[in-house]
Amino acid sequence: MDILSILGVIIGFAVLLGGNFIEGGAISTLINGPAALIVFGGTLGAAMLQTPMVHLKRAIKIFRWIFKPPQNAFRGGIDKIVRWSVTARKEGLLGLEEIAERETDPFARKGLQLMVDGSEPEVIRRVMENELVLDEQRDQDAVRFYESMGGYSPTIGIIGAVMGLIHVMRNLADPEQLGPGIALAFVATIYGVALANLFLLPIANKLKMCINERSQHRELMIEGIIAIADGENPRAIEMKLTGYLQ
């Protein structure tokens, strides 16, 4: 569980509510059903309109990375590669066949299977790098769903504010209608800006960091597997890969 993500959400809400309380406002002043409907519904609808279904499904699937990011143990990955290289030097590349069958990481398992099948290092690199690039592109396309929501949200908030002002202008003769109209105008703006800058854009940036770290871990796997295929010394492989440690 990512503690920083949880703290970020808590602090974001606390700042808004705390600042409103210090100014003498009540929590009820920030609760407005029509404003929430306009901002949240409008933002979601606009983002869905521009997003293909396959990217939307992927965006929903990787949302959990915000609080539970993928585990990319670089030190553990290096140790695993070194063990593979030792096995390869003792038993040959065919000695990795059983290891490949037990490997839980599909990306690493594909590289090991290619190596066991006798593929040339250039072929192994090309296949694995192609998969890395395609997977990274799919994830980046999914992240754009949250980026687009963060871009639309403030504008939808302004639309909500304008609608509230229109409501106010149409009811100038009725003082009882002025309060709800003005509240809709200002609360919708708060919802739009806060949603974008406290949640949606940070979510998109956090997911990008997870994607980059995952890609770096896969690059480590590629370099390690290619080094084994080239017959490099396990110690030399370990020294080469230590640059990936953070």
Rank of each mutant, 00 (worst) to 15 (best):
N130R: 02
M163K: 05
V123T: 15
I81M: 12
E147C: 02
E131Q: 09
S153D: 01
Q137T: 09
P154K: 01
D117I: 03
D117P: 00
M169C: 00
R75H: 08
I156W: 09
E147H: 12
D135N: 14
G95P: 05
N72G: 14
G157Y: 01
D135M: 06
G76A: 14
I166D: 01
L134T: 01
L114H: 05
R89E: 15
T87W: 05
E122R: 14
M115P: 03
E129V: 07
E98R: 14
M128Q: 09
R83S: 11
E131Y: 00
S153R: 02
K90T: 08
R138D: 12
I81S: 07
Q137A: 14
M163Y: 00
R102A: 15
N171Q: 13
S153L: 02
F107M: 12
T155E: 06
G92Q: 10
G160H: 00
D174K: 10
V82S: 13
E122D: 12
Y146D: 02
S119V: 12
S153N: 07
D79T: 07
M149Y: 07
F74A: 15
I156Q: 03
L132Q: 10
M169A: 00
M149S: 06
R75M: 11
G76W: 05
G95I: 08
T87K: 15
G151S: 09
R144Q: 09
R109A: 13
